[in-house]
Simulated scan of single mutants.
Amino acid sequence: MAIVAIIDTGYRSYDYEKELFAGMGYELQIFQGERVDIPAKRALAMKAAGILVRDTPIGEEVFSGAPELKVIVRYGTGYDNIDLEAATAHGIKVANVQGYGNHSVSDHALALMYACIRGLPTGEKNVLTAFGKPPFPEVFELHEKTLGIIGLGRIGGTFSDKARYLFSRVLATDPYITDEKFERHGAEKSDLENLLEQSHVISLHCNLTDETRHLINREAFSRMRQRPVLINTSRGPVVDTNALLEAA
């Protein structure tokens, strides 16, 4: 019987997967070892016809030793832990869960935005240590400000739908989105340079690819004339951390 392997666990139940794959004639095997035991996870993956994965890096080392492997599905939207070029070379299909986290991630981005612009972390500390002290010197209101969104896909679009009524203007950049979708989400189409220069809040919602790695670098920070609040709920390496520390 062909095997489907779940190599990254963490969800409360896998009853749905068990029922689904049993009905399709597959044996479902769920990794039971330590989360950090990558070699053991890869060993299980190499026995499978299909893999369900979250964070474990999957590449040539697995593909070359997995003659039965036909498909990889990532629990989530990003897939930067999977070597797509190597998978394609081996004829292995890769899929993600489109629509996963649209609301939870966009809600979290809104929460981070409010925490920053209202000075909540600093304000809480000041209230606890020096009652009556002004909470944060850079608090500002949104109704006359510009929001910049980098990546207007499912999550970025959902974020725009929620945030557009808070700002006087929403700019967005995404070379893979149609003009109709910009209009649907209430965002003005912009190039990256203009967005960086005009925005008071910038929220990142792009996949991590070779194109977007360190997209926010020294040059990008030098263009941020408004010294904006920067929210990153995509992937960490979209921002050059050293450049961020220099600009802070």
Rank of each mutant, 00 (worst) to 15 (best):
residue 182 F to H: 13
residue 182 F to V: 00
residue 182 F to C: 05
residue 183 E to R: 11
residue 183 E to P: 00
residue 183 E to K: 12
residue 183 E to L: 02
residue 183 E to D: 03
residue 183 E to N: 03
residue 184 R to G: 00
residue 184 R to F: 09
residue 184 R to W: 07
residue 184 R to V: 01
residue 184 R to H: 12
residue 185 H to G: 01
residue 185 H to D: 06
residue 185 H to Y: 14
residue 185 H to T: 10
residue 186 G to T: 10
residue 186 G to E: 01
residue 186 G to L: 02
residue 186 G to M: 04
residue 187 A to P: 06
residue 187 A to F: 02
residue 187 A to N: 04
residue 187 A to L: 03
residue 187 A to R: 03
residue 187 A to W: 05
residue 188 E to K: 08
residue 188 E to I: 06
residue 188 E to V: 07
residue 188 E to S: 00
residue 188 E to F: 00
residue 188 E to A: 04
residue 189 K to Y: 03
residue 189 K to D: 09
residue 189 K to M: 07
residue 189 K to L: 04
residue 189 K to I: 00
residue 189 K to H: 10
residue 189 K to W: 00
residue 190 S to L: 06
residue 190 S to N: 09
residue 190 S to R: 01
residue 190 S to V: 06
residue 190 S to E: 08
residue 190 S to F: 02
residue 191 D to I: 04
residue 191 D to N: 14
residue 191 D to C: 07
residue 191 D to M: 00
residue 192 L to Q: 10
residue 192 L to R: 06
residue 192 L to V: 05
residue 192 L to E: 05
residue 192 L to D: 07
residue 193 E to G: 09
residue 193 E to F: 02
residue 193 E to R: 10
residue 193 E to P: 10
residue 193 E to N: 11
residue 193 E to S: 14
residue 193 E to K: 15
residue 193 E to H: 13
residue 194 N to Q: 07
residue 194 N to M: 08
residue 194 N to C: 06
residue 194 N to G: 12
residue 194 N to E: 14
residue 194 N to S: 11
residue 195 L to S: 11
residue 195 L to R: 02
residue 195 L to Q: 08
residue 195 L to K: 03
residue 195 L to G: 02
residue 195 L to I: 06
residue 195 L to E: 05
residue 195 L to D: 10
residue 195 L to V: 07
residue 195 L to A: 04
residue 195 L to W: 12
residue 196 L to D: 10
residue 196 L to H: 05
residue 196 L to W: 12
residue 196 L to R: 07
residue 196 L to T: 12
residue 198 Q to D: 13
residue 198 Q to R: 12
residue 198 Q to A: 14
residue 198 Q to S: 11
residue 199 S to L: 10
residue 199 S to A: 15
residue 199 S to N: 08
residue 199 S to C: 05
residue 199 S to Y: 06
residue 200 H to N: 15
residue 200 H to F: 11
residue 200 H to Q: 13
residue 200 H to V: 03
residue 201 V to Q: 13
residue 201 V to Y: 15
residue 201 V to G: 12
residue 201 V to K: 14
residue 201 V to M: 13
residue 202 I to G: 12
residue 202 I to C: 03
residue 202 I to T: 04
residue 202 I to H: 08
residue 202 I to D: 05
residue 202 I to N: 03
residue 203 S to F: 06
residue 203 S to A: 13
residue 203 S to D: 11
residue 204 L to N: 01
residue 204 L to A: 01
residue 205 H to I: 04
residue 205 H to G: 07
residue 205 H to N: 09
residue 205 H to Q: 08
residue 206 C to A: 14
residue 206 C to R: 03
residue 206 C to Q: 06
residue 206 C to V: 15
residue 206 C to K: 03
residue 206 C to L: 01
residue 206 C to D: 10
residue 206 C to G: 07
residue 206 C to S: 14
residue 207 N to T: 08
residue 207 N to F: 14
residue 208 L to V: 13
residue 208 L to D: 15
residue 208 L to S: 10
residue 208 L to G: 02
residue 208 L to N: 13
residue 209 T to A: 03
residue 209 T to Q: 05
residue 209 T to E: 15
residue 209 T to D: 05
residue 209 T to M: 06
residue 209 T to K: 00
residue 209 T to H: 00
residue 210 D to M: 08
residue 210 D to F: 01
residue 210 D to Y: 01
residue 210 D to N: 09
residue 210 D to R: 09
residue 210 D to S: 12
residue 211 E to R: 05
residue 211 E to D: 15
residue 211 E to H: 07
residue 211 E to G: 02
residue 211 E to W: 02
residue 212 T to V: 09
residue 212 T to E: 11
residue 212 T to R: 07
residue 212 T to S: 15
residue 213 R to S: 11
residue 213 R to N: 09
